[in-house]
C-alpha cells in the first residue's frame, strides 16, 4: 500500500507537525486522556482532531487504544457474569456465621 519508505514519511510528518495549529504525535499522546473524557477546550479539540486527520499512525494508534479499553471491559464483564453465576456457598456461610458472631458480642 505504501510506496514511500518509512524514513521519508517520517521526515514529511516531522516537517508538517511544525506548521501552525499542528502538534507532534508526542504532544497528541498527552491530549488523549482529556480528549476521551471530553475535557479539552474547543480550541484544543480542533488541534487534536486536525492531527488525527493528517496522521495515520495516531489514527491507528487511537483506534487500537480504544479497542484495548473495550476488550478489557468486555472480558471483565464476562468474568463478573461468571462470578455471579457461581457464588461460592462456603463464602456465603462464612459471612453469615461471622455475622451471628458479631451480633452476639
Amino acid at each position: 500500500m505504501n510506496i514511500m519508505p518509512r524514513s521519508v514519511r517520517q521526515r514529511i510528518r516531522s516537517i508538517m507537525f511544525r506548521l501552525p495549529l499542528m502538534i507532534t504525535c508526542a504532544e497528541f499522546e498527552d491530549f488523549i486522556i482529556s480528549y476521551l473524557d471530553g475535557s479539552l477546550s474547543p480550541g484544543q479539540r480542533r488541534v487534536f482532531e486536525l492531527h488525527l486527520a493528517v496522521c495515520r499512525e495516531c489514527r491507528n494508534y487511537l483506534a487500537a487504544y480504544r479497542s484495548a479499553m473495550s476488550v478489557t471491559r468486555d472480558v471483565l464483564d464476562a468474568q463478573t457474569a461468571d462470578t455471579l453465576a457461581d457464588v461460592p456457598e462456603d463464602l456465603v456461610s462464612a459471612v453469615l456465621a461471622a455475622r451471628s458472631q458479631q451480633k452476639r458480642k
Binding site: 517520517q10 494508534y61 479497542s67
Partner: peptide, 18 residues
C-alpha cells in the same frame, strides 16, 4: 516517538476491532 516527536508504532489489528 522519534526525535521529532513522530510516533513509531506498528499498525495493530486491534484498530479494526471497534
Amino acid at each position: 516517538f522519534d526525535r521529532d516527536g513522530c510516533r513509531i508504532d506498528e499498525p495493530s489489528m486491534l484498530s479494526d476491532i471497534a
